[in-house]
């Protein structure tokens, strides 16, 4: 189908893709990587512990992504971004300490010669 009349409408959020023009569906399968399971488990546990009140809080972080970031990030990367947004917003963690932790992870990786020590 080539008509995309609905694309003439404004974009209310990068997540609201229903009805937009898009390409063929890539049907290949994808095994969930360990780090993806860990993000998944983190979301579950933070909900279970009441650190996050509900999924809506997380979706909010995803829906605030710029369209560019929404496209660029993978599925669990978007979830990670949303958890970060929510935890910083709630004051559970500080943005600075998250940045510092990411930097130390990167340093650890380059020190290990790029081999991914978990």
């Amino acid at each position: 189908m080539s008509e995309n009349t609905q694309d003439a409408l404004p974009c209310w959020g990068p997540h609201d893709v229903g009805g937009r023009a898009a390409g063929p569906v890539d049907r290949s399968e994808h095994d969930t990587a360990q780090w993806e399971w860990q993000i998944d488990a983190m979301v579950r546990l933070l909900l279970q512990k009441g650190v996050l009140s509900d999924f809506a809080e997380l979706r909010d972080g995803i829906e605030k992504l710029t369209p560019e970031d929404y496209e660029r990030l993978g599925y669990y990367e978007r979830w990670a971004a949303a958890v970060a947004y929510a935890l910083i917003d709630k004051g559970v963690i500080a943005e600075d300490e998250l940045r510092a932790t990411v930097e130390s992870l990167k340093e650890g990786r380059s020190a290990a010669g790029g081999a991914g020590a978990a």
Binding site: W35, Q38, M42, L45, L46, G74, L98, T101
Partner: peptide
């Protein structure tokens, strides 16, 4: 199968790894 991303490499994925580390270090879970 799509390529296995067994190790997080992107900055965005590392945010997830960092969050996990912070949560476990603090005993949130």
């Amino acid at each position: 199968f799509q390529p296995d991303l067994s190790e997080p490499t992107s900055d965005a994925a590392l945010i997830g790894v960092a969050l996990r580390r912070l949560m476990i270090e603090r005993g949130v879970y």
